[in-house]
Design a protein around this nucleic acid. Sequence first.
DNA 1: CTGAAAGCGCTTACAG
DNA 2: CTGAAAGCGCTTACAG
Lengths: 340, 340
Amino acid sequence: MSRRATAQDVADLAGVSRSAVSLVLNGRAKGLISAAKQEAVLDAARRLEYTPNAVAQSLRTSRTRILGVLTWRGVGGLPLHLMASALQTSLNSGYKLIKMYAEPTEIDQRRALSTLGNQQVDGMLVVAPELCEYAAVEALSASPVVLLNCQDPEQRLTSVAPDEEGAGRGAVEALLDRGHRDIALLSGPLTHFQTGLRAAGAAQALVGAGIAPRQVAADDLRIDEGLAAATALLTADRPPTALVCTNERLAVGVMLAAARLGLTVPDDLSLVSLDDREQLSAQLSPEVTRMERPDDLMATHAAELLIEWLDSGSAPEAQHYSFVCPLVAGASVAGPRPRG
Amino acid sequence: MSRRATAQDVADLAGVSRSAVSLVLNGRAKGLISAAKQEAVLDAARRLEYTPNAVAQSLRTSRTRILGVLTWRGVGGLPLHLMASALQTSLNSGYKLIKMYAEPTEIDQRRALSTLGNQQVDGMLVVAPELCEYAAVEALSASPVVLLNCQDPEQRLTSVAPDEEGAGRGAVEALLDRGHRDIALLSGPLTHFQTGLRAAGAAQALVGAGIAPRQVAADDLRIDEGLAAATALLTADRPPTALVCTNERLAVGVMLAAARLGLTVPDDLSLVSLDDREQLSAQLSPEVTRMERPDDLMATHAAELLIEWLDSGSAPEAQHYSFVCPLVAGASVAGPRPRG
DNA sequence: CTGAAAGCGCTTACAG
DNA sequence: CTGAAAGCGCTTACAG
């Protein structure tokens, strides 16, 4: 970066004082500084390619325009897409992001928060890899913070998350609407909080329709596990006419299983999947109907809430924003074929 | 964050001067400050939960221990995994990361670099979404910088990238070794630089073995495009006994096509894919043999090179580090079945 | 309308 | 061994 110009350099070149430079460049010159001098300052700044040193500004104003992001690894890895969207929004508003990985344990969280605190971040975004409850450590509640893809069990923090249970219900309803009754649920491990919610939503909808839930839980959110579980389901005595998958990778497995068994989707088998933003279900053939998680919207909303908080200087009422996962119709759902 | 303790607070509580606090906390007290006072300082710091304000430190020392990351969106989206690994390595060494998205155009790059420069980052990591040539803007060459997944055409910058051409060759060789001669290449769009390299490597190996390359380029790196292209290849007059895919998503398409055509992998068709770190080929059944891109190693190496540069204060000889993509054997390759 | 001064929180020569 | 002072580059009252 060589030798950067400072406000003093600009002042010298323009023949004014340092304060004048600061006023002009921060748009407070109006009615204070003569038009000629203002022009001189702007010109000097341009010629020296002057831009203010953000570190010095931060020290002076005690605002860094940096947001801290706290995240950790979950079953599906890091919440990379949520973070990418949050970053995009922040950059658009002139905020930078510093990320820290910290397991959701008291000690790790405290250490990461300490680093971010030293860095004087203006606010914090906690981004969970999968929907979960997040018990905030004490140190966090002192600063502006918004939770993304998780929720404060005590409801004291503002949070944004998808309605996973609703998505599970919606997937089943899409099949009920087309007349299916033999609907099976293919889920990931139920010990997984997020999968549990999705499966619970689906089961609710089935029970609500007077159908006993028929459920297989794969050992892992993998394509091959989905393939194995789907094969078992579809070769069973009375195979279902429709399947709900709690996760995209399982849906890929289902498509492979169907292809191997000579079953056509949707003629022989209807399929609705929940979404993990991997763009898999959208690329299958036929395109798989899905309940899409609005990650971009959620992340943008969370970042905007935080930035609004910081820019306005007043904390919003703590609130949980639950985002609906809309049904995106592919071509994987048809009416049940009359059984021969 | 409330009211943070400052070095002055610690000095007051410990009954020493501010400089003494600084010396003790930075480990320079040895032989300067009495043991009793050192203890008093440490104790006071502990009681006040004092940690130094990184912004003030940065202003004073003109080192921020922040790295700037410059990246942009490519065909496969953002290089999220590369960035995640680089971040992990950086955090372990006490460096924070600030990311900027900037299209690889002169103007966008300059703007992003300006922001990062204002922020006084100690060094820069340029992380390309796909292997490409990166013509550094002038402003960049002044600061410590390492390129990741791209390469300076003028060879003036240190860079780290996978040997994509070698990976293409390796995939073909894995099939040649098992006796295949009827090998077809299923690639993405050849206008895509990275795909072009992969395909070129594969073609080289084929030509080297005296085989005329037989090549189909899908319109897009999508599962359904792979499925369509593979179906065309496998239902052609004289179908190949083996396939090389330049990308993982195409390989998923191949598996679906094979399943629909009643072909078993690897009995009826052998398959080797190149890798995009999506963990798709590893989850197919059978697991697909692949040339794995060592993203974690590359990202770690790039971050380490940069940090070593910063910590040592001396620029390394500009050099390109080419990383081999090792063959990871799945179960998708067998000898060619004698044609009936 | 302008300039000199204070101060954000640190580190580091420098004089005692 | 310790303390007073300077200075990193800014912004913002404050006195002229």
